[in-house]
Design a protein around this nucleic acid. Structure first.
Length: 836
DNA sequence: GTCCCAGAATTTTTT
DNA sequence: ATTCTGGGAC
């Protein structure tokens, strides 16, 4: 009722801008309003003043400031779990409620469709109405498409251009590379596609790419190929994802009058996850947000609000520039910076651990999350060790089942409230295997997406070609799928024919079957294909699109192809095709569906099932779980070796941010794991605990004793003798703090892989009541590279339980480099070897 | 045109 | 080790 939206016309596409806030009709409004008010009227006005709109109540002061500071540039630094989305959505609601702008005058950009969807939903909830009225809320790319469809001709496209996904792009580039006579084996199309993507992320045209880059590919043909690629896109009337950003930028630059229209249109601009913007997105935003002084010299206010968290910037490797957020105040002078640091998600232990870890980064704006929640029962962050990744999976599974049965307080936990977040997706398999054995429900988030599956892409290619006969990539994809006897030779002839006449391949096919250029067999097959598409195109207007889609798949023989396929995955593929048709029902037309699919590539998960989530740390951003398991905290894996090699210190810091993201996903419980042995590329490698573990504050962390109650190496088994010499714990950490912690339980851990010690979680008491009251990290930093004399010397002959015999070739603290007779050179902790 | 074997690749992911 | 891709052979 009093939500302040009663008279906002939500579906008004282009209303005249209103100058004044919309005042709710008040009983006091009348002749006397504004002048000498009656007592009753004044009281009522005061009451109305005092009563804040519903949507503002419950915001903390910083959030409220972020919502109410509507004029000028604002940067909201929103730490994990500080109500970022709430601020964004409430801010939009506030703009609408105060009548500052109509829905169509607000530009709100997100990175993912999911985020956009969520925002729409939440705004709708706040406003109590539909949100179709926010036409400019969407991803950078979807808004880019919208702009381009309106102004396609300004960049040399027609408005029904096709959007190519990565797969299409790679195939296209491959053709170009081959056409140039370049060895596509030596210079993979995939690699060049990645290069182009990188250039486009930086906003670079072929003419602008650095000379070095241009030379780096195919013996200096980089620039040439990039140019050829762009030309080919244009002739196909197609865009890749990068173009969806770059074309609007080109268009705005070349057409200031068009840009001016949008300046007037977008009165408020909001950007989510600003730390993830790349250079192209940044340029795009600058164009729209930075308005030149008009002729009269009066500047339009830049009502730009960017929300982000520099500590959660984890996409540098795909072009995101953390720098964008770090220099916001310089870019937008007079910007107001608001920090949201009050966390509503996690316990103080979790926040303490995460905060202490991230404080090791240098390039950051600096925030410290805090919470009022102080529950003595809150668990510390727990660090676990396991022998290898198999045991890690087993132990995590065990812990999950324990929580499921009921924790210490007897509370039973839902699997939905738990997640396993891994650094690299190959880690998932071991958990899946284990959970299958246990019969534990799990869901993998991320994986190959629905629309990327082979059969879906094939089907989509049929649909695309029916709607857009000029879509050569679609044509080439399905012309011989199912097999029609139209092989390379035929396609090449057709291709040349089409290029020579500058017509689409489908049109070329229609021509060429009138000639005798093809062998009769191919000619007949092609004739049928052309006839099919002609027929389907004829049905496009008047046949319900789901029906037509089914008909296409059946008549083309595509369905039959999978029905006849006796491989294990064929039934699943048919099921997916059915699912595809089902999902089309929500759309008006085939065309509308295609538009949707090219940008919105997610498939929804089954939410009903109670299941543990398994996903990468990257895909966990933005989510939260009661209990979070973070396996694989080992040097080389996390931080990932390649991040270190390629990114140096910046790479390390990004890995650390990833660790920070991981820990802050947890609301109540956070378990970290490292293993001593991990199979990488099929080879067992002995591994060292991640440096990030050393960077955690002891005060908020406890070390779980190796808990052998988890099946496996049970009491007295071979495990005992197998591992008791390894003593990974006592040697895992060279740091005094850890050693001291180990010292406390030397006896218990002497045989830490062998005995059944039951439930055993040991607390390290530093920082509070520990024996010395010293903190680990103070010493850690000083001694990060241990110089303690090793009990080995270079040249020693040693034996390793996994790798066998070898000679030590180098020693660095307790880390030995050993040339194994069989396993080759490895770096190993000295605790893992003994004299041979 | 199809099938099979050998060799390569194997961080993270959106649009 | 395993999976996928590409080239070469049938």
């Amino acid at each position: 009722m009093s939500n302040g939206f009663d008279d906002i016309p939500f579906f008004d596409e282009e209303p005249a801008p209103r100058k004044k806030p919309v005042a709710a009709p008040s009983p006091s409004s009348g002749p006397s309003a504004g002048g000498g008010l009656g007592i009753a009227a004044r009281a009522m006005a005061a009451r109305d003043q005092a009563r804040q709109p519903d949507y503002l109540s419950g915001l903390n002061p910083e959030q409220r400031e972020a919502v109410e500071t509507l004029d000028g540039p604002v940067l909201v630094l929103a730490g994990a779990g500080t109500g970022k989305t709430r601020v964004l959505t409430t801010r939009i609601a506030h703009i609408l409620a105060t009548g500052r702008a109509f829905p169509s005058q607000i530009l709100a950009v997100t990175f993912t469709n999911k985020a956009a969807r969520e925002m729409k939903e939440r705004i709708g909830h706040l406003v109590g109405g539909q949100v179709e009225g926010m036409p400019w809320l969407g991803t950078f790319h979807s808004i880019g498409v919208k702009l381009l469809r309106r102004h396609a001709e300004l960049v040399g496209l027609s408005s029904d251009f096709t959007i190519l996904d990565t797969d299409d792009v790679v195939r296209l580039i491959k053709q170009l590379i081959q056409a140039e006579g370049i060895d596509d084996k030596r210079w993979p199309a995939k690699q060049f596609a990645a290069m182009i993507d990188g250039w486009k992320n930086k906003g670079l045209d072929p003419a602008q790419i650095p000379e070095g880059d241009a030379r780096a590919f195919a013996n200096g043909k980089g620039r040439e190929l990039y140019t050829a690629y762009q030309n080919r896109l244009k002739s196909l009337n197609a865009c890749d994802f990068g173009d969806l950003l770059l074309h609007p930028i080109r268009m705005f630059r070349a057409n200031p009058d068009v840009l001016r229209d949008y300046h007037q249109k977008f009165r408020y601009i909001l950007v989510d996850e600003y730390q993830d913007t790349n250079t192209a997105q940044y340029m795009w935003l600058r164009l729209l947000a930075q308005r030149p002084a008009s002729a009269g010299g009066k500047n339009e206010p830049v009502n730009l609000c960017c929300v982000g968290d520099d500590d959660q910037s984890i996409y540098g490797w795909r072009g995101a520039e953390v720098d964008n957020i770090l220099r916001f105040e310089k870019d937008f002078p007079g910007a107001k910076v608001i920090k949201l640091e009050r966390n509503y998600r996690s316990t103080e232990h979790i926040l303490g651990a995460a905060g202490h870890l991230i404080a090791h980064n240098e390039g950051r704006l600096g925030k410290t999350l805090f919470t009022d929640r102080t529950d003595p029962d809150d668990e510390k962050v727990v660090v676990h060790a396991a022998w290898d990744s198999e045991e890690e999976a087993r132990a995590v599974g065990e812990e999950i089942e324990r929580l499921q049965r009921g924790d210490a307080t007897g509370r039973k936990h839902n699997l939905n409230d738990m997640a396993i977040l891994v650094r690299a997706s190959f880690q998932m398999r071991e958990f899946e295997d284990r959970f299958v054995t246990l019969g534990l429900n799990y869901r993998v988030i991320g994986g190959p997406r629905f629309y990327e599956r082979l059969e879906i892409r094939d089907a989509m290619a049929y649909f695309r070609l029916v709607c857009q006969p000029a879509d050569d990539l679609a044509f080439e994809r399905i012309v011989n799928t199912p097999k029609r006897g139209l092989g390379d030779t035929t396609i090449r002839t057709l291709h040349d024919y089409a290029r020579a006449r500058d017509i689409p391949m489908l049109a070329a096919a229609a021509d060429i079957i009138e000639t005798d250029e093809l062998k009769p067999k191919a000619r007949k097959a092609l004739f049928d294909v052309v006839a099919d598409f002609r027929r389907w195109q004829g049905l496009l207007e008047n046949t319900p699109h789901t029906e037509l889609a089914e008909q296409i798949l059946d008549e083309s023989g595509y369905t039959a192809m999978w029905q006849n396929d006796k491989s294990a995955e064929a039934p699943g593929r048919l099921e997916n095709l059915k699912e595809l048709i089902r999902s089309m029902e929500a759309f008006e037309s085939l065309r509308g569906f295609l538009e949707h699919v090219s940008l919105v590539m997610d498939a929804e998960q089954n939410e009903d099932l109670d299941a543990v989530s398994i996903m990468t740390l990257h895909s966990a951003k933005g989510l939260e779980f009661d209990t979070v398991f973070l396996p694989g905290w080992e040097e080389g894996l996390f931080p990932h070796q390649r991040a270190l090699d390629e990114g140096g210190r910046a790479g390390l810091e990004e890995e650390r941010r990833l660790a920070y993201v991981g820990i802050t996903r947890a609301k109540r419980r956070c378990h970290l794991w490292f293993v001593s042995n991990r199979r990488i590329h099929g080879l067992w490698q002995s591994t060292m605990p991640s440096r990030f573990l050393d960077e955690l504050p002891p005060m908020h962390v406890e070390v779980a004793e190796v808990d052998t109650s988890y099946g496996g190496y049970g009491r007295g088994g071979y495990g005992q003798s197998r591992f008791d010499k390894a003593e990974p714990f006592t040697n895992s950490y060279s740091t005094p703090g850890w050693k001291r912690a180990q010292q406390n339980r030397t006896d218990a851990t002497r045989d830490n892989w062998g005995t059944r010690s039951g439930h055993a979680v040991e607390r390290i008491g530093y920082g509070e009541s520990g024996p010395r009251g010293r903190t680990i990290e103070g010493e850690l930093v000083a001694k990060s590279t241990s110089t303690e004399p090793s009990r080995f010397a270079v040249g020693d002959r040693v034996f390793h339980i996994k790798f066998g015999n070898g000679n030590i070739s180098a020693i660095e603290g307790n880390k030995l480099t050993i040339d194994f007779d069989r396993a080759g050179q490895k770096r190993v902790l000295d605790g893992f070897v003994e004299r041979a």
